[in-house]
Design a protein around this nucleic acid. Sequence first.
DNA 1: GATGAATGAGTTTTCATTCAT
DNA 2: CATGAATGAAAACTCATTCAT
Lengths: 194, 194, 194, 194
Amino acid sequence: MNQISGDRNSTVRRDNRLETVLDSAARCFCERGYDAASMRDIARDAGMKAGSLYYHFSSKSELLVAVHEEGIRRITALVKAALVKPGSPRNRLEAAMVAHLEALLGGGDYAQVVIRELPEMSDEQRSRLIGLRDDYEDIFKSLIDALPLKDARARRHLRLLLFGALNWTRTWYQPGDETPGDIASGFLDLIKQR
Amino acid sequence: MNQISGDRNSTVRRDNRLETVLDSAARCFCERGYDAASMRDIARDAGMKAGSLYYHFSSKSELLVAVHEEGIRRITALVKAALVKPGSPRNRLEAAMVAHLEALLGGGDYAQVVIRELPEMSDEQRSRLIGLRDDYEDIFKSLIDALPLKDARARRHLRLLLFGALNWTRTWYQPGDETPGDIASGFLDLIKQR
Amino acid sequence: MNQISGDRNSTVRRDNRLETVLDSAARCFCERGYDAASMRDIARDAGMKAGSLYYHFSSKSELLVAVHEEGIRRITALVKAALVKPGSPRNRLEAAMVAHLEALLGGGDYAQVVIRELPEMSDEQRSRLIGLRDDYEDIFKSLIDALPLKDARARRHLRLLLFGALNWTRTWYQPGDETPGDIASGFLDLIKQR
Amino acid sequence: MNQISGDRNSTVRRDNRLETVLDSAARCFCERGYDAASMRDIARDAGMKAGSLYYHFSSKSELLVAVHEEGIRRITALVKAALVKPGSPRNRLEAAMVAHLEALLGGGDYAQVVIRELPEMSDEQRSRLIGLRDDYEDIFKSLIDALPLKDARARRHLRLLLFGALNWTRTWYQPGDETPGDIASGFLDLIKQR
DNA sequence: GATGAATGAGTTTTCATTCAT
DNA sequence: CATGAATGAAAACTCATTCAT
C-alpha cells in the first residue's frame, strides 16, 4: 500500500515522489492527527529526509491542504461514479452513502483526513478547505432534496443525521464488522419513508 | 492527588485551584485539541505558570484523563437527571438526546473533550477512558433497547446512527441555530416508529 | 571579561543570567554580526542551552533590540559623563568624541553593535532602534551647533563628517595604535576653526 | 571559471549569464548582507535555480569574492577616470571623492558590497580581498600625500577622516538629498588648508 | 502551593551544496 | 548550461518537564 519505489507499469511517470509524499502525509495525518504527525514522520514514511519535503510543499499546513484537496477529489469522484447508474431517489442516496463509507472505511487515509477537524491555519487556507467540503456536501444535499420529504426542515435534519452518522462510523468501525453496504442500508432502513 | 471533587463534606471547598486548572485544560483541549494545546496555554488560562500545573497533575496526559473523567461524570449526571421523570421509551430517549446535546453544545468544554479522538497515551490510560465512555454509551443502549424495534441489528444501527449524528453536531452547530431540543426532536421524527 | 558564574562582590544579585545572556549576545553580534551569530553560539557563550535563551528573550531579534538599547544607554551615559565638565564648545566636542571612541574601541561589544547596520526586523522594532540612535546623535548635533560655524549646511556636514569618521574607525583601528584621544584630536585638528 | 570579463576579444560576448549572476549577487549582498542573502535569493533574482549558480561559481563565498573584485575594479576605474584631468591637488582629491561617492550612492550595488564588513571566509580569500581594498585606498593615500600638509600623522588622519566619512554616507544618504558633489565639497570645505 | 529558571529532546524550516539527467 | 530533486547540517524556536527556592 505504500510503494516507495513503486514500478506501477512501465512507461508511467517515475519519480512521482510528490505523490509518495502526499500519500505519506495522508497516512500520518490519518493515523496520528495533524498536530501529532511530525514532518520527520512523514518524511520517514516517504523514504526521504525531512528537509526534502519542502521541495514539494512549502509548509506542513500546505501539505495538509494538498491532502485535503486530493481527498475531496477522490471521494467526490467515488461518489459521483456511484451515481452514474440511474435509480430511485432512495437508491441513489443509498449508493452515495455506500461510496462515502467505502472511501472512509476502506483504508482510505485521504478520506479520513477530509472529515477531521481542521487545525489552526491561515484564514485563506481554512476557507479554501471549507469551500471544498461544502461542494462535496452539496452532492448529498441534492440527493436528499430528491426524496419525497415534507419540508425543508426535515430535509436538513435528514442530511445532518445521515452525514453525521456516516462520518462518525470512523470512530467505531472495525474491519471485519459489517460492510459499508450493510451499514448504509441499516441506517436508511431506520428512516421514515416520507 | 487528582480526585476531582474529593471532599465536598466540608462547607468550604478547598482545592478550587485544581478546579480552575481543570477548567482551563478542558477549555484548551476543546478549542485547540490535545496536541496543539500546550501546558503553557493551559497555565496562562488558569492564571498560573506552567510549572505550577505539576503540583496538581503529574503530566499532560493525566490532565487529559482528569478532564475526561470529569466530562463523563458531568454528562452522565445530566443525562441521568433528564431520565428521572418517567415517560414513554421514545420520550425518554428524546430527553436523553436533549441532555446530551445541551452538554455538548451549551459551552460545555468538558463534554466536547469527551467525544474527541483520543491522542496517543499509555494503554492503561486509554482503556480506562474507553471504559468510561462505554459506560456512558450503555445508557443509550438501554434506552434504545426499550424501544419497540424488531431486531438487535436495527437497535444497534439506531444507536450508532443517533449517537454519531448527535456527536457530529459539534462540527456544524452555531449558537443561534435551533435549540438542542429542536435538533433532537428533528432527528427522532425522521426515525420509523418500529 | 566573560564571567559566567561571576562573583562580583558579595551581596550583589546572583542569578543575573539575563545580564549574562545580554553580554553574550552583544559579544556574538559584535564578533560575527547578527545574521552569522546563532542562538547556539550565544547560549554556549552564556553557558546555557539554546532553548533557555527563550526564557529571557522571546526571539533573536528581541535580543538584538535589547542589546541595542543597552548599548545606547551605555554610550549615552559615557558621553554625557564626559560632558559634565565645562569647557569651550570645541573642547566639549572633543571630549564627546573621545568618549564615543573609547566606548567603540575599548572592547565595548555593545557600542559596536549599536553602530552596525540593522538586519531585517519588524517595522516596530526598527523604528524603535532608529529613534534611540537619533536621540544619541542629537547630543552631537547640539555640540556642533555650539561651535562658531557659518551656516546650517556646514554644521550638518561637520556632524556627518565627524560622526562617519568616528564610526568608521572600527574597521581600521588596532589596539596598540593611537589612543582614542589621539584620534579625536587628530581629526579635530584638521577642521577649520570657523 | 570565474574570470569576469574573460574574453572581450570576440565581438559577441558570451558568458553574459555570468554577468547576470554577478549582478544579482551584488544586489542581494548589498541589500541584505552576505549572511542574510541566500543562494536561492540570488538565483531567483538572476532568473535561474539555485543549483545553476554552481555552474558559474563554486561556492557562495567565491561569489562574494567575485563581486568584490568586480566592485573594486569598477570603483577604481571610476576614480582613475576622474583623475585624468589635471588640476590642483585639492581639486584632484575632490574629484576622486566625488567619483567614490557616485559609485557608492548612485545605485552601485558592487561598490556598497566592497565597503561592507567581510564575513567569515578562508584566510586566503580574506587576504586577497584586503589586498585589493588596500590597493584602492592607496589612490587616496597618494592624493593626500600631494596636499601641502605638515606631517605624516596629519596626512594619515586626513585620509582616515575623509575615507571614513565618505563610506559612512551610505548609512544616512537618501537619494534626493544633496548630490555627491555637494557632499564632497561640503566635507572638503571644512578642512584646514594646511 | 507556586514560580523562576532551566533543560533536553523535539519541532518546523532554511540553506549551501550535490548530482543525474 | 540548467534544473529537478534531494541531502545533511544547522537554523530558530517550542514544549513537557524538573527542581531549588
